[in-house]
Design a protein around this nucleic acid. Structure first.
Lengths: 146, 146
DNA sequence: CGGCTAAATGAAATCGAATTTCAATTTCAA
DNA sequence: TTGAAATTGAAATTCGATTTCATTTAGCCG
């Protein structure tokens, strides 16, 4: 990793070491705050902005990407995996994934047709997860569109 | 519209009249600020928060939905149309659409399989639009990867 | 037509995540 | 070892989103 960063003009530091390690351990849909807490367990002197900057750095070097589920908090995903979309439960805020190979394959021709140069493709499905569906079978939340 | 709102327990006001009208005229991917400016042309005494609240209201009654393209600004789309995804040009910030009927049809079974109750489906493709591609053929922006 | 209550408004204040500033520290190539 | 450039931590700032609050208004009821 030190070498990889060097080739891109960045230095390795103890804090960065911890942050990178933590990020790749936690895995996906992490928020800055979550990662910050996690990092503090290893070294409680690491600053919030350092965690933030390094998360941005991980994105810049192409190892992660920002995920926006519309709840005002930015999450971060590793990009070292298959293309995938997200299920976002509006009740428990839990994020799960689904494989998106086929969807992506369908989307590319659409972009090509409009001569749009694609950087990233995102699919987000919001709704209620199985667990929360069961939980809210009774206590209904005054539906506006009855 | 007055009647429609009444059935949902809301009143009609001059400001609301203007805001609703403006929203459905402008059409899509409007930001609060854009709509606010537009509304002020009809009546420069309308407040920003009123525009914001009414945009939220339009969403609540199911006539619009929030669109999040990851640039920190919330946009609003009418929902009275075919399901569609968005192209977002990271250079000129322009938003265009693409038809998504078929994609949605493929996505639903995926959600069903995980027993996820779907509220909304969003597909966002970020990249560079045709116009901006031509514009930036020369002045390259120091690519980090490569 | 008044009177009344809930809803709506506008301005200003607040919130909160994201981002920047700045002085001090650290990395690492020469 | 040394110096330039990168990095860090804390605090400040930014900026869109949202709330507060005093005032006004819509629309139902008699």
């Amino acid at each position: 990793m030190r070498e990889f960063l060097k080739t891109k003009g960045f230095k390795m530091t103890p804090q960065r070491e911890i942050i990178f390690r933590a990020f790749f351990e936690i895995g996906d849909h992490v928020t800055v705050d979550e990662l910050y807490r996690r990092v503090r367990k290893s070294d409680n002197s690491v600053g919030y902005s350092t965690v933030w900057r390094n998360l941005k750095l991980i994105c810049r070097v192409g190892l992660a990407e920002e995920v926006n589920l519309g709840d005002g908090v930015t999450r971060y995903d590793r990009v070292t995996r298959e293309p995938h979309g997200h299920f976002y439960c509006v009740q428990c805020k839990q994020v799960t994934e689904f494989e998106m190979e086929e969807i992506v394959a369908k989307l590319h021709p659409i972009a090509d047709k409009q001569l749009f140069h694609v950087d990233t493709i995102k699919c987000e499905i919001s709704g209620v997860c199985e667990t929360c569906q069961k939980k809210t079978d009774d206590d209904d939340d005054t539906p506006l569109v009855s």
